[in-house]
Design a protein around this nucleic acid. Sequence first.
DNA 1: ACGCAGTGGGAAACCCTTTGCCTTCGCAGA
DNA 2: TCTGCGAAGGCAAAGGGTTTCCCACTGCGT
Lengths: 346, 346
Amino acid sequence: MPTAERGSTAPRATLTDVAALAGVTPGTASKAINGRGRLRPETRERVRAAAEQLNFQPSAIAQSLLSGRSWTVGLITTDSIGRFGMPVLLGAEDALGAGEISVLLCDTRGDAIRERHHLRALTARGVDGIIVAGRRTDPRPPLPGPISVPVVYALGPSTDPEDSSVVSDDAHGVRLAVQHLADSGRTRIAHVTGPEHHAAATARAAHTRSELAEFGLQLAAGRVHHGEWSESWGRQATDIVLRADPDCDAFFCGNDQIARGVADALRESGHLVPQDIAVVGYDNWDVMALASRPPLTTVDTNLLEVGRVAALRLMDAIDGNPHHGVEPVPCRLVIRDSTGPRAPVR
Amino acid sequence: MPTAERGSTAPRATLTDVAALAGVTPGTASKAINGRGRLRPETRERVRAAAEQLNFQPSAIAQSLLSGRSWTVGLITTDSIGRFGMPVLLGAEDALGAGEISVLLCDTRGDAIRERHHLRALTARGVDGIIVAGRRTDPRPPLPGPISVPVVYALGPSTDPEDSSVVSDDAHGVRLAVQHLADSGRTRIAHVTGPEHHAAATARAAHTRSELAEFGLQLAAGRVHHGEWSESWGRQATDIVLRADPDCDAFFCGNDQIARGVADALRESGHLVPQDIAVVGYDNWDVMALASRPPLTTVDTNLLEVGRVAALRLMDAIDGNPHHGVEPVPCRLVIRDSTGPRAPVR
DNA sequence: ACGCAGTGGGAAACCCTTTGCCTTCGCAGA
DNA sequence: TCTGCGAAGGCAAAGGGTTTCCCACTGCGT
């Protein structure tokens, strides 16, 4: 017979049980276990032994009722937690877990009704705070109604500047990419990115323009190329750009899928990457960046860190020190084989 | 002044507040709100109005304390929630949310210490049950120690047959794929898959063998080709298989990445997909299956459904009807352009 | 007018833990 | 012997909601 009989439905021991076993009152047992009050060391030890014997665990629910804090936060994701929401979630869970705070997960599927429903459920459960993780970097309206607990927006900022938001620093990411390309001698850099109605696309495009200007450079083909966030758009755009500007020597792409499409199209049309043309992606999505031929140099958006920082800001707010405004988290450039020195002009 | 003053720290109204406003005792107010006891309709209405006016929400914590149920379940993921864990999680969250149950998320990063820690935290919080979602389909040892609440294992089953597990039905998925290939006239089918130490690879390989035998077929190249779960392995394996068996007319791959690699290698070596050679993947990971040229026919593992069923089984168990053993969830074949009728023999 | 049935709603216990206050006891000093 | 003090630990309330039990009152029948 194994010592640990699993699946047993043994009712959990309460403090009263422990106290009875140790021959004291519940109040005294509480003090013994929590190291408060004035107790003989011997008594303290007796209670501890009893607690151990009964495998006592204090009821967090009862503690919450009394303390008014649930040591729980809600994490609302505005759209099915996908590639972007997930690292944010993990980062937040990590930071909160270290503070012994548990995460209640709510997925709204982008539905406002569901969002309100989850919001009610969370406040009913007495969460100490809420993190709202967007699926994209587009700003979103704040949670509706008066919320009685602190809220931090992660990845997609709130449109209300009074709210606390934590986002990945697009300007920084773009700067890293463009500097890297310029440093490796590229002068005709194209920018291929996602749809114009995505903040991530337009913001990065704007930063690309201004950063190129810093180096006295202009966009290859004269303009930003907007399309889908897909490999197929990357392949398509490659043709368009090379036809418009055959001397183009680098592609900076709005995400890794587009970059991979570009790399494929270049290879298949006989251009050498990076000797002839360099390619830089965005997001550092390993499954794209590593599978690409060649593997992609790309901007890591540090989403884990975004989640972690959001959690820290929330804990600050819970402790009475709310933050306001949008806090950008720096990016990181991951250099792989799709960039490198330009080959000597043939 | 907007009606909804956000960020306000209005303390939540309690039942006592409502009762006072309605001129009754808390007990009566409770009955009025929950539709119990014998009350005059007028009184009931007065209380409801008071509750509405104060925006009353009963404290789930107080309710839990009394009822012994927290309407909360823990979701433990054994490794950072990735591509496989996430759909399971979403399916579970969906099914539970409909039952007004919230999900406490715990990520163990595959660390047993962290797992125990989270387990303690969950039981302390009084969860009504626990779902353990693996990252792969490999069986895992059950949670340690006596657990006082029901547990359901999703995706990766427990090694204890007494436990309740819900998994994707590999045999069914393989059958769908092989039947589809056989139906379209393929007779020399190769199987390229992941490492031998992954249950997903070996199980699917075994099922492939026996399913082929059903059709009187044998593996092209005479054996299963094990390697990494990567595109690059898919490309590599393509060469190996075609060299060993030039008449091979179909590749059934252990996942979509391998299948995409196969499709790329075939295209680049001048084989037509599907006219010459058909390709079938596994997982229906859209980002691979759709981006592949051509898009992949693939087996959808129905992980959302796995999560949903796991949640249903857990709720059953919570209601006193525990399940035992491993329950497979059927797969679905998604047919795209990488399969089709074989071209007439040239 | 009295008794009875039935209705409406109040009082209090309960869930579990924490904590401030109070009691009790022992011992030392006067 | 009595006072005083410190130490040890008991007592009870609080936190918010639910539920059982019971009481009081109304209205009807006789």
